[in-house]
Design a protein around this nucleic acid. Structure first.
Lengths: 337, 337
DNA sequence: GTGAAAGCGCTAACAC
DNA sequence: GTGTTAGCGCTTTCAC
């Protein structure tokens, strides 16, 4: 086991007590500028690195924040993490990554095995099929602040950071209507998810505003994967009355739809318009380019982390809800001409 | 500060000593099955969670492994992390993520500020412009095992896990030749990177084997981004003698090339063939689909983590080098007909 | 302004 | 097989 230099070494070297060294290392407390400078100099010279375990043990806090989310292999989550990491690094926090693979069991498992003493707070985006979120309530009750982002658990009283799903969906569908599409279908996300529900509401609201028919068979619920998008599009095409546009709950599904339409030789845009939600860079790479409501993933990551850090300081934090607007990127997939 | 239940509580409750509890919790040591069962039952009842800081402090080891890499917002790294996380979770390790944003300064900074006592080992993929890797040597000397993956530092004596860059490039270029392309350019990665060098070697070897000319102006070095791919393609097109195929060091650059070719109205495949390296899923979404040497990113992640965990156990580990083969995915971007 | 000493939760000799 | 005790590195009263 390697031996690292400790404050004891510094104290011995300087012939002062460890407590003075400890005090000098942190800005706080009364330490003469003289001794502090000496301590800092010696620390640098000896390449002193604080032992986080000891600090954590003594202060009852690590400098870690946990991130619990379905996966990192997509644009949204990986970008959000980048934002989180940036803020964390600035404030001297480390981020510990927990991947649920979008499985509720795994999510629960991680949460149970998670030693609460190893993180000061938790940033979470729930798995899509999570039935109950009581386990998060427990964690919060035990005194560990939790901030939800993107996929939030509605029935939990804690801070949440989200994109504006309702207005984003509304604006996207309205764009479709402005382009002249009239029979607009919605390929929605998992039923229980708040995010899906909000986007669905936005879809309905836009149709209503423009007095377009709401047809039950034009609204499909399934997972967030590209494959499910492909299947949903197949079902839509098989309908007696085909829609002339598809608004998908996210870009992956939108791309799945495009793939199916292409397979059937349907001209995307002129024949059937397609719009997504996310702002995945792939939307600009695919042909035709995909119209999509771009989410501020990076900013959401930053904000969530800032909020969590704010909560970690205080004993009784008051939950906040932050909603960030998206930006519509207009591609060729919604051009009729 | 919340109070968590400790082994002391369990001991008091059961009227036994803390050491017995401690011993019972770990399989090791002689503890009567009877007491162990009692302890385990009580621990479960009290919702006991071990304090990692205390364990770490006492044993001189955390249960954390650090991952230091340029970014997570791309297919390769995010997939590798998923593999790493899977193995880590199985073995009860937590992963701490450090993002360098591909900046050598930031890499160095993180490494310096990294309290070595907060990780038992380090998994790293270096930033592309890293001049020197002496800092890693230091970390290793201090007793922290390091395993490099993908972007490895050549002059460091430690374990490395990579895809087979040489043979992968060789096979890809040979595929181009088999398709009838003769004037094959190579849009390479950053100069100093081992990975780029290996792929370049593979490219040369394939040309040599088939007695094709090696032309200096057909080999371009730049970063790994899509934009740089676009620029490189522009330069290639401006040449007096245009190549009839481009082998790019990675998919991002290949896609950048495709974008430029499209802009110039050049038929990708028939006029100029394009092949990449990575196996990014986008390669199947873009039109035409991109021929690419798919890397086993997930497997590389798993293997790296397994190797690191193996090293963490031992005091003096002997470095190993593991090379994993890729799989050529043939798309339409290399079809001449 | 600085030092002595107790203690955070756990492990590991060392006794018995 | 189990208890006692010292100590991991740091923070934090409490003295002086």
């Amino acid at each position: 086991m390697p031996h690292f230099v400790t404050i004891k070494d510094i104290a011995r070297e300087l012939n002062i007590s460890v407590s003075t060294v400890s005090r000098a290392m942190r800005d706080t407390y009364d330490v003469s500028k003289e001794t502090r400078d000496k301590v800092l100099a010696m620390a640098a010279k000896l390449h002193y690195k604080p032992n986080f375990n000891a600090t954590g043990l003594a202060k009852g806090s690590t400098h870690n924040i946990g991130i619990l989310l379905p996966r990192v292999t997509n644009y949204y989550f990986s970008t959000a993490i980048t934002g989180i990491q940036q803020v964390a690094l600035e404030k001297g926090y480390h981020i510990i990554l927990y991947l649920t693979d979008d499985s509720p069991e795994r999510e629960l498992d991680i949460l149970h095995n998670l030693s609460l003493t190893s993180v000061d707070g938790l940033l979470v985006s729930t798995s899509s099929a999570a039935e109950t979120s009581a386990h998060f309530q427990e964690v919060i009750k035990e005194g560990v602040p939790v901030v939800f982002f993107d996929r939030v658990a509605t029935n939990i009283y804690t801070s949440k950071v989200m994109q504006d799903d309702f207005n984003g969906a509304f604006a996207t569908v309205e764009h479709l209507i402005e382009q002249g599409y009239r029979k607009i279908a919605h390929v929605s996300g998992p039923v229980g998810l708040a995010m899906s529900a909000q986007r669905l509401r936005g879809y309905f609201a836009a149709l209503e505003k423009h007095q377009l028919p709401i047809r039950e068979e034009w609204v499909l619920f399934s997972g967030f994967s590209q494959e499910e998008g492909e299947q949903d599009a197949e079902r839509l095409l098989a309908l007696p009355e085909r829609p002339d546009a598809i608004f998908a709950a996210n870009d992956r599904k939108a791309i799945g739809c495009m793939l199916t339409l292409k397979k059937h030789g349907i001209a995307i845009g002129p024949e059937i318009g397609v719009a997504g939600f996310t702002g995945d860079p792939v939307s600009k790479l695919i042909t035709p380019t995909l119209t999509t409501m771009a989410e501020p993933a990076f900013e959401i990551g930053r904000k969530s982390c800032e909020l969590l850090l704010k909560h970690i300081g205080k004993k009784n934090f008051i939950p906040e809800e932050i909603t960030l607007p998206g930006t519509l990127f207009i591609g060729d997939s919604t051009k009729r001409g």
